[in-house]
Nucleic acid binder design. Sequence first.
DNA 1: GTTGCGATGCGCT
DNA 2: GCGCATCGCAACA
Length: 193
Amino acid sequence: MPGWADLVGDVLEVAPRLLGAVVRHGDVAVRLTEVEAYDGPGDPGSHAFNGQTRRNATMFGPPGRLYVYFTYGMHHCCNVVVGAEGTPSAVLLRAGEVVDGIDAARERRKGSDRDLARGPARLCEALGIDLRHDGVDLRTGPVTLTPAARAETRVATGPRVGLRGAPDRPWRFWIEDDRFVSTYRPAVARPSR
DNA sequence: GTTGCGATGCGCT
DNA sequence: GCGCATCGCAACA
């Protein structure tokens, strides 16, 4: 039975284990269908690449916390910190399916139910997550993460987009054939497991 | 389904 | 100043 111990460590191993986990804030709960890995201080795509700043301090803290940032002047995105304290590895929560509190989610977001949390900024909006939640401990709330009961078996992987000089490794993980996966930046699916 | 573009504020050089 | 781990909408296929 997977638990929190499985969600700390090497980000490329931990990230796929977050698929199927449930994030809850108040009445709304989202089952994760798509995530993306950010691998420590040597990852040129990471906010932590240029060292610790006020904004990214949570990434350098202990694992099991939520790292929330504000971007494009209007959107929030959230990550789960998975690296040991001092190692800024985190997993961006890119998409999910609202599995509880759908009425509350609909009040926050217009559009189809399928799109309520399909996209990192949409997911945050559906859950009502903003900068006030940066650094919260996901074991104690108010935002909580419940590990998946069993590992997802149909996991697909693909490259991140728009990065230079990044190692050739899979960075994005999603549940294959799940309707609640972002198609905004399509990637070539490749069976994993 | 896809592509193109504007919105909009903050962190960092 | 520039660029951003994005989104919604319009136009098109």
